[in-house]
Write a protein that binds this DNA or RNA. Sequence first.
DNA 1: GCTTTTTAGCCCG
DNA 2: CGGGCTAAAAAGC
Length: 143
Amino acid sequence: MNCQSFETESGYLCVYEKDGRVFKIQFNQRCEGKINREIATQFQEYLEGRRKTLDFPVEVPGTEFQKRVWASLRKIPYGHVVTYKELAEKLKTAPRAVGQALKANPLPIYFPCHRVVAKDSIGGFTGGIQWKRMLLKIEGCEF
DNA sequence: GCTTTTTAGCCCG
DNA sequence: CGGGCTAAAAAGC
């Protein structure tokens, strides 16, 4: 596992890689370099199973609805899963709309969309269902 | 702008 | 399995 941080024209970028797959994470301008390295460390610790929550300030682009859904993801406890339907009921919307919003998740792991599964299956995950399985496994959740 | 299609779901027969 | 429901976003007009 490798995790690095860079400065780019639009903000800071954190890249982490495992098993040949790459996640790229973009941060807003307000993140200090010091905080940025701290963030990279948080991701690394999470992937090694030594950290349960990621916590740092971030601003992501999205509609009001999407941001509301993403925020709600962070209330799902570590190692716990909910279904699209349960989340939809909580947010007073429809399961498919939740799926749409999760698909647009700009910051996986920080917004733990892998903790949302379908009623009778694991559901989807952008960039590979293997990631979802792996992340759940890290959290000790066999699915 | 307004209309149609698409979607990481779900339920019923 | 196959349709019908559904809300949001994207694509089409």
